[in-house]
Design a protein around this nucleic acid. Sequence first.
DNA 1: ATCGTTGTTGTACGATCGTCCAACAAGCAT
DNA 2: ATGCTTGTTGGACGATCGTACAACAACGAT
Lengths: 205, 205
Amino acid sequence: MKAPSPHQPAFRRTRPDARRLALIEACARVMARGGAAGVSVRAIAVEAGVSPGLVSHYFSGIEALVAATYAHVEGAVGETLDHAVEAAGPDPRARLDAFVTTTFAPAIADPQLLATWIAFWSLVTARPAIAAQHDEQYAGSRARLEALLGACGVPATERRRAAIAVSALLDGLWLELCLSPGCFSAEEAGDIARRFLDTLISPDR
Amino acid sequence: MKAPSPHQPAFRRTRPDARRLALIEACARVMARGGAAGVSVRAIAVEAGVSPGLVSHYFSGIEALVAATYAHVEGAVGETLDHAVEAAGPDPRARLDAFVTTTFAPAIADPQLLATWIAFWSLVTARPAIAAQHDEQYAGSRARLEALLGACGVPATERRRAAIAVSALLDGLWLELCLSPGCFSAEEAGDIARRFLDTLISPDR
DNA sequence: ATCGTTGTTGTACGATCGTCCAACAAGCAT
DNA sequence: ATGCTTGTTGGACGATCGTACAACAACGAT
């Protein structure tokens, strides 16, 4: 090597939004590995390969980073579900079934993903801002479900309740699937959810 | 005051099991007040009115105390549900409805109670012993539900699935009711669950 | 080639964490 | 009244936490 360069850079500068995203993804990995209790500024900095000071530079605190990570992971989950629904074609019921099946697919019903939710939930009760963020996320999730149910012929007057019910059933199955994966299978969860949908959607169409 | 006593006792001795229970209840109160993240040996000791060293004396660590607290609170919830079922009389469907209604009653669908569950859940992924404890609790909960469903005429071959489904729906509704109490009411949650039970229980009896 | 900006580093700081253990005293047996 | 058992205290200890900040260096502008 001719090596005219006296040294290689000790670090690389990055566009703020890219660095911010890297920190968020590092936070998600740390939570996935060590659980919600293992998150710390230093662990995240090591995971992202940066100095601990950077976390404070991009986020007002560790809680803000957890909240941003939740928002990011929730967005990714939403995209995965949307793509699955779109790939299912035009038939409304097929789209709803795809939504259910994907909810229990390995990419989403992941014990490591649950750690992000738990870390976020643990802040909901005490922090009003976090509670508001959760309400917003839940409202969005329910709206998506209402649209899918409406396309299947669920009357507008029943959509709200139906969406709350489906959302709760899916969440409950998803939670248990993550907490004790050996108790029942993703296929069973999907069957249970689809059978429930049968009772909500009138067959006369 | 004649006060022949030079001083009043600096502390009172207690039977080990009573002190242990007092620490568990103090842990539950601390979690209810400050969320799952606020639990610490010192906070629990202050809440229980004892010295910090006592926590280490009765429990091998803070995680063991959280696990014991979860077991205790879960037992109390189970008793509340059992009493409600018993008070509902002999009719199987009335007993099942009482189970549902009580699940969403203020005593159980309590945001502060959720903190205990979250603190416990945050340990499930990383600690095998905690995971085993959760599996045991879930199996017990499902068995109780299976018995109630069986009494309502759900065939034995379908009981397992039905219990998983009902348990998931109740858990999902309970979770959302705790996380954002303003989104829907306990009455709505009860109506949704009872309507779901209608679809599981054949009316021909 | 040099400058200016700003993303990044590394550390110091005080607070708080869980754990441990020797000393103490409350209450029962004698 | 006295001694003994043991529940209880209270602080020491090292580790780790979140935060703040002055110095540094990468890199585009000039």
